[in-house]
Write a protein that binds this DNA or RNA. Structure first.
Lengths: 106, 106
DNA sequence: TTTTTATTTAACGGATATGTTAAATAAGGT
DNA sequence: ACCTTATTTAACATATCCGTTAAATAAAAA
């Protein structure tokens, strides 16, 4: 569970979520490109990338002096698996074991 | 996006994730029952519940002096929607698709 | 109305997070 | 070698998070 909470923590910051979404949309990108479009300093972006990497959300690859980042599918798959494990709970129209929520749906 | 990051933040703590999973498994429960099984103090649990509530993950209902908590399906559905929006990145066999498409653009 | 039960809010301390600027590192070009 | 480019690490300030114990609040019971 610690792994999952770490992933959630990594994605709980708007800057980091934006970085991840950009990497998903455009594929592998070097740190410099990510910095160029960010509103915060290079070092700040660099540390966000480190947080994402240590949480297993992205991976890093060196090419000359550049560091190329890309999203690791495993992390997102873990989140998806978690939601699917509890699919019965949030999916409309399904019975829920022992739940008292059926009547106060909004 | 702030809403989604708030949800991730709410679930990024192990105690809170455990509370949410318990409420999903057992349905609506009063604060006291949740406190009884927690390893931290009542006030600590109370504040975790407040964080979850303010993030929209759970809802609170009063019954006498008791406060009954339950999970709001909308929050989990939002996470599920986000993962599904990006499923091309984590689905087996398609994890390279996004990167390849992005390379084509250059 | 006084007491008990259920729960939250207040006050406080220590750990963690996030931003900045300056310095360090490392590969490449001249 | 020296300078430039790309990026990270260091040092620092401030803010937020999370735990604790003590006090406050509110409904129910006596």
């Amino acid at each position: 569970m610690a792994q999952l909470t770490d992933t959630f923590a990594a994605l709980s910051d708007e800057t980091r979520l934006a970085l991840v979404e950009r990497l998903m949309a455009e594929g592998e990108l070097p740190a410099g490109v990510l910095v160029a479009n960010a509103e915060i300093s290079g070092p700040a972006v660099s540390r966000h990338l480190k947080v994402l990497r240590e949480a297993g959300v992205i991976r890093q690859r060196a090419e000359g002096t550049r560091r190329l980042y890309s999203v690791r599918p495993e992390a997102l798959r873990a989140i998806s698996n978690w939601t699917m494990d509890h699919r019965a709970f949030w999916e409309a129209g399904l019975d829920r074991l022992g739940a008292l929520l059926a009547e106060d749906k909004e």
